[in-house]
């Protein structure tokens, strides 16, 4: 978990799966603050769950209560990184991890997130850049769990505030110093999920070149309830395309109340890219986003 643009400022460390790589390369050089925070999954009085920030990704993916009530979160946890990473990496660390931009990760290159005044990717090689270009930095948000948690209206506790909506903690992606709106010194301690919806299905999928173990070009979390062949509830959150996980409200609106048929899927896919402003090299991500919307809507309609 991090909080610094200045590479010499202190950083929180949970399992270290992100930070250790940046320290080995020299991108991050500040003091280490090993975090103490709860791990584990507990029910809350309102019927929801409270997830300790140090719960591992593997534990989230395997937890029966998460799998039953929040299958999109369980699937997202099971679908990220590699098994070895999932056994170590934590919920809090995943949300607060730094981006994967190859300019940011390269110790020899200056960039906005390392205190420089311009983004070298914007005018350079932007193959993996955002397609919804709404911040000075063009790196997509790296956290798969953040996208899933946004889809479930999760709220965060930190050492500085309680019960903050995750959208508030993630911010608008414009901060120069981090990929979240966490304040200096702020540390995620727990994540709360509201009571699960009934009659709902949820899915997660990422578009990648290889079969497994690749940072998503685009990823999508979908929650849907289908009643009488009609989409009665729908939530779509995309990752890999914007500086923060992106809720696709136009696509939701295009499908809500409509029959769960191919015509509706196509309308939702077309609406999914509303407002997109890709860089020339990242335009392809919009096609992948539409493909994912079609794929997951079709799955939602065909199951049960």
């Amino acid at each position: 978990m991090s909080m610094a643009a200045d590479p010499t400022r202190p950083e929180y460390r949970a399992a270290g799966t992100d930070l250790s790589e940046r320290r080995r390369s020299g991108v991050s050089r500040g003091a280490l603050l090993d975090v103490a925070a709860p791990a584990g999954v507990e029910p809350t009085p309102d019927g929801g769950l409270r997830l300790g920030a140090l719960t591992t990704i593997a534990a989230l993916a395997a937890d029966p209560a998460i799998r039953a009530g929040y299958p999109g979160l369980a699937a997202a946890a099971a679908g990220l990184a590699t098994p070895q990473i999932r056994r170590m990496a934590t919920l809090g660390g995943n949300i607060a991890q730094r981006n994967r931009c190859w300019y940011f990760r390269n110790p020899d290159i200056a960039c906005l997130k390392k205190g420089a005044d311009a983004c070298p990717a914007r005018a350079g090689n932007a193959l993996y850049a955002v397609a919804f270009d709404s911040a000075p930095c063009v790196a997509p948000h790296p956290s798969t769990l953040a996208a899933a948690l946004l889809a479930y209206d999760a709220r965060l506790d930190t050492n500085q505030r309680r019960d903050a909506p995750i959208a508030e903690a993630l911010g608008d992606g414009r901060a120069a110093s981090a990929e979240t709106a966490l304040r200096p010194g702020e540390l995620i301690t727990a994540v709360a999920l509201p009571a699960p919806a009934s009659n709902e299905r949820a899915f997660y999928k990422r578009a990648i070149g290889r079969a497994h173990a690749e940072w998503p070009l685009v990823e999508l979390v979908l929650r849907a309830s289908v009643e009488g062949g009609v989409f009665a509830g729908l939530r779509l959150v995309a990752g890999g395309v914007a500086p923060v996980p992106l809720r696709l409200q136009a696509a939701e609106a295009a499908a809500l109340g409509k029959p769960a048929t191919a015509t509706t899927f196509a309308a939702a896919a077309a609406a999914a890219i509303e407002g997109a402003n890709p860089l020339p090299q990242s335009r392809y991500k919009l096609d992948l986003l539409q493909g994912l919307v079609l794929d997951l809507l079709e799955q939602a309609a065909s199951q049960g």
Partner: peptide, 20 residues
């Protein structure tokens, strides 16, 4: 590569993708 500076960008195994 970054064609302005001549730096190679795909310098880790996340960005240089070999078959699994």
């Amino acid at each position: 590569i970054d064609s302005r500076t001549g730096r190679v960008l795909s310098v880790n195994l996340d960005d240089y993708r070999t078959p699994g």
